[in-house]
Each structure stands twice: as structure tokens, then as C-alpha cells.
Write a protein that binds this DNA or RNA. Structure first.
Lengths: 183, 183
DNA sequence: TACTATCATGTAATTAATTACATGTTTTAA
DNA sequence: TTAAAACATGTAATTAATTACATGATAGTA
């Protein structure tokens, strides 16, 4: 396998909460899920077909207006089972984060490199924006303690992402401060 | 493009430091670089050919022993130029970290889910090990201040990775502690 | 009524990346 | 001296993922 095809499990996981169309799933990747996983509709529709062939999901056609057909997919018992399996199975592989900025940094040899300040500054701006964005999401998605209870995993990972960005920003600030002053 | 083919730049970056064979490069991905990027030899050898066709690198054949041929690649002036371009160009896309554990967590609805403790525990173990490993590397790779000076970018990102793991471990511990106690 | 944004579903082409297949040499240690 | 580990270089098959191509319906608004 080139990857472990996690997309199938994400789809199963989302359908396990409620029936959705391919379009709905695509939207989910632009919002909620998009925070930590991406997929385009060109990947989603074929995957839905495969999952249905395997018997893990099924669909019924509904018609909106005069003739617009929607395929509303739902998870099957077998689908639920392999979703449970996937979640229950250990996750021993820590995937290296393929961060392009980090990669570029690796090839900077000297702390006097004139590109360093702007590079760090750009990332600081980006990660600060992301930090604020996550802060906002945490606030809007989990308004009351009950919503945390109902989506505890989501709460945990949003909190995790926020903390991660906070650290990233701190590290960038520290690295900028440690740079030799031009004079 | 499916990705932005960062591999070519990594190869150029490594060859910019010293001439290397395909085998050397493969090893580099198992050690140094492996900390934050992966590539197999089956990807490296074809990429070397492409880079040579493009005129960014060139090679000479050396013979070890009786007949074992090695291709020692070095970067060309043009190669150096596009490497510089890549590093100097902004890096505005923050790649979402595709962490399988995080993904699984997302589908855990309740903090009473019986799978939660073992899941968090497993990750705690893994990330603690990784943390210690990184701590060790930082110690062995950068023994004196001079080595930090000579490979400043590498120093920065190792430090960054260490801090990231430290935070991950903290977050896992906190999440474990916040779990409702079984009774 | 006409236009635009969004809804809705697909396929094709291309690139990236992993796993597997394939072969031969040199060095080191038992 | 012989066997194993490491050195060394490739190709093929498969899967994953992105970008581009392609089509049409519905809802809202100007």
C-alpha cells in the first residue's frame, strides 16, 4: 500500500454519526475534518463506490426538486464493525510531520543567513493566524460542557491542535529572538 | 501535481553539502533526514536520473574493489540556483499533520469510552520514547557550540521536534488525568 | 427573467509514494 | 573459508492523492 487508506475509515466514521451524501462528505473535509485531514470529491466518490461494493455502506436515492438525485449513504453493520476494529487496533506508527518550512530550515547552515529572519517571521505570522483560528473554533464548536461530553474526542484534538500551534508560535518567537542582531 | 515534489529539493540540499551516491542518500533518509522526511531508494534513484537530465546534478563513476561501480553525484551551478530559489520562496501552506491517532480520537464520542485509556496510554509510551530519542540525538549531534553554528537550521528543527514531543507527552498526560475514573 | 452561487456527481490524467521484484559486490566476523 | 551483513543500483506494480475535465440542477437575488 502507498498509504493505509485512512480515507475509508474517515468516511465510515462520519457515516457512523449520520447518513450523508458524497457532497456532504466533501463539505465535511472543508470544515470540521479539514482541520486535520484533506480529501477532494474526486477521491471521495470512487471511495464511496468501493465501500459500497465491499458492503460497508449502502445508499438510497432521494430526489430534490424536480429531478436532482442525491445518494444518501449510510453505514452497514459490517461497516460499523470494521470501523470499531480500526479504532480499537493499536496505532504504533508515529508519522513524521512533513512540514516544508522545517525542511527548508534544515538546509540553512549559519545563523547569520540573511534569509532566516524573514523565513521565521513569515511562519510566525501564519502560525499566529492559525492559532487564533483554532481558538475561535474551540470557542464556537464547544459552547457548553454538554457539547464537550457529546464529542469528547473532537474536543480533545482541537485542544491538542491549539496547544501545538501555541508551542510552534513560541518556538518561532524564541528562535527569532536568539538570532544575531544585524548591525 | 499530487505533491510539490519536495524530494528533489532535499536531494539537492544534501548534494549541496557534499557529493553523495544514491546509496548515501538512501541512508541519509534513514538517519538525519529520516527524523522529518522519508523516501525509499526506489524513489531516489529515478529522481537522481531526472535531476541529472534537467542539468541540476551530474555524476562520475568510481570503482570500489574489483568492479563495484558507484555513481557519485554532485550539484551543478544551476542546481544550486534552484535550491536557493526554493529556500528563498515563501512557504505559505501549513500542511495539516496527518496523525492517525488524532483521526481515531475524533470518532470517540464520549469520555467514558472504554477504549480511551489504552489508546492514550499507548501514545504516551510511543511519544515518550520518541522524546527521549530526540533528546539523545540533540546531545550527540550537537556536542559543542561550534557544531550548532555549522548546522544552525538542523539545530533549530531538532530543538523544535523535541519541544513538540514534549508538548505531545504533556497533552497526553493531561488528557489521561482528566478521564473519568472507572469504579 | 436572467444571472450567480451553491448543490450534486462523476471521470481522466498525472504525480507521488510504497511495496515488491531483481541482481550483483564487498566487507566483516564466526 | 564461508556465511551473513552491508554496500550498491536499478525496475515494476500498485495505491494514494491532486488537478483538471465534464455535466447538470436548484435556490436566491438583482
Amino acid at each position: 500500500m502507498a498509504q493505509k487508506n485512512k480515507l475509508q475509515f474517515i468516511i465510515l466514521g462520519l457515516l457512523n454519526q449520520q447518513p450523508l451524501t458524497g457532497y456532504d462528505l466533501t463539505k465535511a473535509f472543508e470544515n470540521e475534518i479539514g482541520e486535520f485531514w484533506q480529501a477532494q470529491h474526486s477521491q471521495i466518490y470512487p471511495q464511496l463506490k468501493r465501500l459500497e461494493t465491499q458492503g460497508y455502506i449502502a445508499h438510497e436515492v432521494t430526489v430534490s426538486g424536480a429531478k436532482l438525485e442525491k445518494k444518501l449513504y449510510h453505514i452497514t453493520t459490517e461497516g460499523s464493525a470494521i470501523l470499531r476494529d480500526w479504532i480499537s487496533t493499536g496505532t504504533p506508527d508515529l508519522t513524521a510531520t512533513k512540514d516544508e518550512f522545517i525542511l527548508k530550515l534544515y538546509f540553512i547552515r549559519s545563523n547569520h543567513d540573511p534569509r532566516l529572519p524573514e523565513m521565521l517571521q513569515e511562519q510566525l505570522q501564519l502560525h499566529t493566524t492559525k492559532y487564533h483560528h483554532l481558538q475561535q473554533r474551540l470557542k464556537t464548536v464547544f459552547t457548553d460542557p454538554a457539547s464537550k461530553q457529546a464529542h469528547y474526542g473532537h474536543y480533545l484534538i482541537l485542544q491538542h491542535a491549539l496547544g501545538r500551534e501555541e508551542y510552534y508560535v513560541d518556538w518561532l518567537k524564541q528562535s527569532l529572538a536568539a538570532l544575531p542582531t544585524a548591525r
